[in-house]
Amino acid sequence: MINRRYLYLLTAALIVVITYALTNRSPERPIASKSTHSPLPPHSEPKEVNKQIKVKGRKVLGLTPGEENKEVEDLKFANDISEEWQEGVEKALRAQGGSSLSDIDIKKTDSFIWAHEGVALNVESVLITLKNHNGEERKFRAMVDSESGKILRTWDHPVIDPMNPRESRGVSIDPRYHNN
């Protein structure tokens, strides 16, 4: 009888402890691990990686882990930073888009230094918004040369879902190819 009473007390105490633990768990300080987790691996200290090094306020990307400081000292810059890069971007877009565009908007979202094999390039990451004469709008991202405004890469282009895929613009064959 006494043993059973102790058992009840022990169970109640356990419930209190578990409830306390569950209601007070901190998001940054885990209190327990799920039983399904495997044991920790042999070495488990999280390492600091991709240390963000900056030169003249610009993040430097592309450095070899562990060699960052030395590589930054040895970097040779391939371009300068010019105020006119934005004009260069717009000129390139106008050259390709011609009269089809009613509006071009170029927003700088980041500036950084792109290091590759000892050569550093100042680049701007931009968001480009184009508008046509129907008022339709398209956005994509681009990496541009901070000096010339030359567009180096574009990405994040839109995924278009037309009501009827058959009405998408295709490329017609010149009738001279198959005139028979």
Binding site: G98, R138, H157
Partner: peptide, 14 residues
């Protein structure tokens, strides 16, 4: 074609 590609997000360095 070039205009269409640009509107899809492909800028080519001419």
């Amino acid at each position: 074609l070039l205009q269409d590609l640009l509107f899809k997000g492909l800028s080519v360095p001419i």
